[in-house]
Amino acid sequence: MIHDFLTWLGSTEWSVRLLESLWVWPLIESTHVLSIALFVGSAMMMDLRLMGVRFGTVRASDFTSRLLPWTRGGFVVMVITGILVFYSNPVRYYHNIFFRLKMILMVVAGLNIWLFHSRIHNRVADWDTAAPPPRAARVAGLVSFASWTLIVVFGRLIAYNWFDCDLQPQPGFVNWASGCMLPAE
């Protein structure tokens, strides 16, 4: 069902135009990469603070009040441009194993953000200058740093068709994980 919907989505006029455009697609993709440098880059600096690795002289709440608006701005641009890239070729991305790994990790990163803000950051006054930060904050920083690093790596690898469904034969696991619909033998 999702496959059928995405097949339709990919056949819409703007999707086709976007994929075939000479300048717009590269510009969107470049904006995506540069907004990643802003979002992931500034998030990583905050993660270093949460892990107690660096920025020990800066209060944790400075990161979440003064730097976070920039991080959020980068996130918004990154998501919008990412959705546009997906829209340009939805079926291909949907069945790409790296895209799927990336989406799973984005759920992990998202849950981590939610847990951090609802359980750990709401008591930031207790540990704003604590060195090292409490264990829960260090774990949240580590999960964030690791998951965003892998998201960047998998995101880059989406561009390669090693495991694409139209490139058979593939190991059974790959076809299963990519949701490939193979013709009955």
Partner: peptide
């Protein structure tokens, strides 16, 4: 690309501060 994020983040926090925004405390 991961290096770009590390470099970008570490440049940005200082550049933002030089510009008068970000970690102003």
């Amino acid at each position: 690309l991961v290096g770009l994020c590390v470099l970008g983040g570490s440049l940005l926090v200082v550049d933002f501060r030089l510009l008068g925004t970000g970690l102003k405390d």
